[in-house]
Simulated assay, not measured.
Amino acid sequence: MNINKFRFDQVGLNRFFGPLEAKIMDIIWTNSEMSIKEVKQQLEKEKPTNFNTVMTVMNRLVDKKILEKRVEGRMSQFKPVQSKEEFIDEQSKKLTENLLDEFGGLVVNHMLDSLQDVDQSLLERLEQKIEQLKKGKSE
């Protein structure tokens, strides 16, 4: 699944989705499979939301292959194609690959510079990964 826009000035899911899309995805990821009415009810805990707006956004998420739609009589059930963790993993990998393809060593340098204040366990995992890569290239 391709997310065409990455918003650097946003945080969390809003980097990948518009505000309503992000709220809907968060709700569905928390509840697994839901109808438009159920999602609307969850959204209305924060503010009133139009049913047709929710329906339009959810159907667009189906078109983008982020949600799957299953029709049961007159009601449709929606569920995520991937878990939230799988989605974030896939999108961050694509973003990293795109940055490396376009900017190469600059990206690696900036990533390494940003590791100064990182958790020690992350540094250890990075060292292990680098060792694995070195072994793979020498064989």
Results as ranks from 00 to 15, higher is better:
M1Y: 11
N2R: 14
I3S: 05
N4R: 11
N4V: 02
K5V: 12
K5T: 13
K5L: 14
K5P: 03
F6E: 05
F6Q: 08
F6A: 06
F8A: 06
D9W: 11
D9N: 13
Q10C: 07
Q10Y: 10
N14L: 14
F16G: 00
F16H: 09
F16Y: 15
F17G: 03
G18T: 13
L20I: 13
E21F: 01
K23W: 06
K23T: 08
M25A: 03
I27L: 07
I28D: 04
W29P: 01
N31P: 05
N31W: 07
N31L: 13
S32F: 15
M34I: 04
M34E: 04
I36E: 07
K37P: 02
V39C: 04
V39N: 00
K40M: 15
Q41I: 15
Q41P: 00
Q41C: 05
Q42I: 07
Q42Y: 05
L43Y: 02
E44S: 09
K45C: 03
E46W: 06
K47N: 11
T49D: 02
F51W: 08
T53G: 04
T53N: 10
V54M: 10
V54R: 03
V54E: 03
M55I: 04
M55D: 14
V57W: 02
V57Q: 06
M58Y: 00
L61N: 03
L61P: 00
V62P: 01
D63W: 00
K64M: 14
K64N: 13
I66R: 01
L67I: 01
L67K: 03
E68I: 03
K69Q: 13
K69P: 03
K69A: 12
R70P: 02
R70I: 07
V71C: 03
E72K: 07
G73H: 06
M75S: 13
S76M: 05
Q77P: 00
F78V: 02
F78G: 09
F78N: 10
F78A: 09
F78H: 10
K79V: 01
P80D: 03
V81H: 05
Q82E: 12
Q82K: 11
Q82P: 00
S83C: 08
S83A: 07
K84D: 08
E85M: 06
I88S: 04
I88M: 09
D89T: 14
D89Y: 15
E90A: 11
E90K: 04
E90F: 14
Q91I: 10
K93D: 06
K94A: 08
L95Y: 15
L95N: 08
T96S: 09
T96C: 09
T96M: 13
E97P: 02
L100P: 01
D101W: 13
E102Q: 15
E102H: 15
F103P: 00
G104Y: 05
V108C: 02
V108E: 06
V108S: 07
N109G: 08
N109I: 06
N109D: 08
M111Q: 08
S114F: 01
L115H: 07
L115K: 13
Q116K: 15
Q116T: 14
D117I: 08
D119E: 12
Q120I: 10
S121L: 05
S121F: 05
S121C: 00
L123R: 14
L123T: 12
L123M: 12
R125S: 14
R125P: 03
K129L: 11
K129H: 08
K129P: 00
I130Y: 10
Q132I: 09
Q132M: 11
L133E: 07
K134P: 01
G136N: 13
S138L: 07
E139W: 02
